[in-house]
Simulated assay, not measured.
Amino acid sequence: MKFNIVNEIKLIYTRKGNTEKEVLNSQDATNIFREHFDADQIDYRESFYSMYMNQANKVLGIQKISESGITSSLVDIRIIMQGALLCNAVSFIILITTLPVI
């Protein structure tokens, strides 16, 4: 017996709480990103984050896209765009944390 079955895909976006944080400039974005970092681990390895916003520049959420080695992080643009589409973002800001240059 042969069945032609198509898999159902379920994509979910949930919000924990309701944020009213607004990004008006780069300093606002930096402050919001820093709230989500563990200060003891920010210089430990390279990480890539994306912040999604609505049309009023209110933050919808922050997603960790990747965390890799000390000097590199692999990023798939499809993951960034999937997050933007799931939360109906109008814009997004990306952030890469790296080791400080000494």
Rank of each mutant, 00 (worst) to 15 (best):
G61E: 03
L85C: 08
T71L: 12
F3I: 12
N4K: 08
E8I: 10
N7L: 09
L85K: 14
A29C: 05
E46M: 13
T97L: 02
K16A: 10
V90S: 14
L85S: 14
F48A: 05
T97K: 01
F3P: 05
I62S: 03
I80A: 01
H36A: 15
S68K: 11
R15F: 13
G17F: 07
I79E: 13
G17P: 04
R78L: 11
V90D: 15
I96G: 10
S91D: 10
L24F: 09
V23Q: 02
E67Y: 02
V6F: 07
L95T: 08
E22G: 03
V23C: 01
R15K: 14
K10W: 05
I102W: 14
Y49R: 04
T19N: 11
I77L: 13
T19G: 14
T14F: 08
S26Q: 12
C87A: 05
E22K: 15
V90R: 14
I62F: 01
L60F: 03
E20C: 08
K2W: 05
E35D: 15
F37Y: 11
E20Y: 11
N54V: 02
Q82P: 02
N88W: 08
A84I: 01
N88K: 15
I96P: 03
L11E: 15
R45M: 11
L60A: 01
A29M: 06
N18H: 11
I5D: 11
S26L: 08
R15L: 06
A84N: 02
S47G: 09
F92H: 13
S72E: 15
I102V: 13
Q63C: 09
S72A: 13
E22T: 12
M53H: 01
I62M: 06
S26N: 15
Q63F: 08
K21D: 13
L11C: 10
F48T: 00
K2H: 12
V59H: 00
R34P: 00
K10C: 13
H36T: 15
D43K: 08
D40I: 02
Y49S: 09
Y52F: 11
M1C: 07
I42Y: 03
Q82N: 11
Q41I: 06
